[in-house]
Nucleic acid binder design. Sequence first.
DNA 1: GATACTCCCATCGATAGACGATGGGAACGC
DNA 2: GCGTTCCCATCGTCTATCGATGGGAGTATC
Lengths: 112, 112
Amino acid sequence: MGTRSAPPDLLPGTLDMLVLRILARGRAHGYGIAQHIKSVSEDVLQVGESSLYPALQRLLLNGWVKAEWGASENNRRARFYSLTPAGRKQLVTEREEFQRIIVAIQKVLENA
Amino acid sequence: MGTRSAPPDLLPGTLDMLVLRILARGRAHGYGIAQHIKSVSEDVLQVGESSLYPALQRLLLNGWVKAEWGASENNRRARFYSLTPAGRKQLVTEREEFQRIIVAIQKVLENA
DNA sequence: GATACTCCCATCGATAGACGATGGGAACGC
DNA sequence: GCGTTCCCATCGTCTATCGATGGGAGTATC
């Protein structure tokens, strides 16, 4: 024990926002969302499926996204998620709040 | 229930870094640290004492900070915390990692 | 037509971190 | 004396991430 394991994967509290953002581009299935986050972030952000699926459940429960079964690009059974209008609003809200906080943190980091 | 209460206060996982950053300026007591974060961030970041003291305990345990009792500016009994050399290193590490992740998140937010 | 590999779903248990509530004590102003 | 501000700290709850685990359905390989 002790030895630090790899990178912290991601910042708690930001996953929902990231997923909403990906879905703002169009429908996607869980596996694809995880891949996408990983690739766009150039491997810095790693979303495990055990973080992702609970997140998607939350988003469904809150009505930010809806889901429908279909076939993936590879002809496999997949569940496609997409944003609801409420989800779009939520994305805007979360982005603003996120930026607000990041700016504040940077202020502390720089200005003392 | 339901109605979201006020702002999310702060991003989980960033508190330790913020505290280390404050202490990099010089010794300070718990109450002062909380005030300082609040004021420098212009009230955006709100650190409750029930978040702060456990954080300070963690930092002590890890050897990033040390503590000594003394008298505050207002002549009250106070515990002053200050960075250890290990704490300075840790601050550098955490800042780098934080920036890495923030940049990655921004990439996702912007580039798709 | 078996085997292996990739894709895609999902849950469970452990762990950690932030927060509200709570409690106490000591200095200071009135 | 009494209230307010300052300063300490813990406990219980809640939420979220993560590792481990399990399964099933296509495709490719031999």
